[in-house]
Design a protein around this nucleic acid. Structure first.
Lengths: 190, 190
DNA sequence: ACCTGAACACCGTTCAAGT
DNA sequence: ACCTGAACACCGTTCAAGT
């Protein structure tokens, strides 16, 4: 799988290398210990000064969003693959399940994504929009098949899914997470 | 309404007064600005040293849980009142709605309660257990009336409700919150 | 038994100086 | 144009001294 990293033609080569290093380190840190990463540690492990981190990611949110970029891309690809499955409801459920698994793995990604004030036109913003669009296809198919209620809205469902992720960050009980997901899915059905 | 404050016969009068003051200030602060309260500010506004705050509330979590005590008591009373209503489902829905309203008002109370490792026998623990018990009556009634599925579990529902609260702390959109709640309720129905 | 607040530690953020 | 890291600020937490 190719890593999705922001690339600007205008960026100097060393700047791009620092950007990439920061992102790699941040991804590992977030996956291991959650969103409460220590920015100084990230900079040190990436071999750059703390000021460089701030130059590339002015806010913690910016760094977290960038960290999520890969997963947003994967989730879009996954949705596109699922769109060809015969079982429309099963496809939608699998996709939502994957959202939770990514969230659980990447810890506070749910929060990062949910609170994202994605800058218009930014790469992370495009990736999220694309992810939602392909997810919406899955929802629409399930609705067309008559198994999901027409009023159900993708943004509401995703937010609920991410809420589950956030709520289960501290002491995750996989069985309870599954039951909570089942409740939400049951709520979508006709 | 009488304020529910932890009271120990063994506690010295001045200690009790400090405890109460800290709680009053903390409640105001949490209601106004959320769970990210600055402990030193709480202590200063309560007119006590920071060490006194730590003596009474060894962890931030302890303080937040104590802050929620009043609401837990109210939620139990409300559930008991609702238990006499004819409309079993309506009663349950009203109670869940109140959980969200309290959470939205008190901000991160959802998180505080959800992650509570309530010490066995503590006042806040008893209050939460009592709240859940009277809430469970509402759920059981709705199930007995045949409108809510038998497999639905109160703890799962409450956790989902609190997840909604947490997820909507930053930029609450009342309409979306309502739709998310509606989804969960729809998921409970037979 | 309880309170105080100085002291320490940790971490986020800025910015002047350097390449 | 970008990087560095010292410097500052803020806040959490402890603990010796006091009542």
């Amino acid at each position: 799988m190719t890593e999705a990293t922001a690339t600007k033609a205008s960026r100097r080569a060393d700047a791009q290398r620092n950007y990439d290093r920061l992102l790699v380190v941040a991804r590992e840190a977030v996956a291991a210990r959650g969103a409460d990463i220590v920015l100084e540690d990230i900079a040190r492990d990436a071999g750059v000064g703390i000021g460089t981190l701030y130059r590339h990611f002015p806010t913690r949110q910016d760094l977290l969003e960038a960290t999520f970029l890969d997963e947003a891309v994967e989730l879009r690809e996954y949705a596109e693959k699922l769109a060809h499955e015969a079982d429309a409801l099963g496809a939608l459920v699998s996709w939502l399940r994957q959202q939770i698994d990514f969230g659980a793995h990447g810890r506070s990604m749910g929060s990062a994504v949910m609170n994202a004030k994605h800058t218009e036109g930014s790469e992370i913003n495009s990736a999220c929009v694309a992810m939602r669009e392909s997810g919406d296809v899955l929802l629409k198919r399930a609705q067309a098949a008559g198994v999901v209620r027409e009023e159900v809205n993708l943004l509401d469902v995703l937010r609920l899914i991410h809420a589950i992720v956030i709520a289960n960050e501290q002491s995750p009980d996989p069985d309870q997470v599954q039951r909570m997901l089942d409740l939400v899915i049951a709520g979508m059905l006709t």
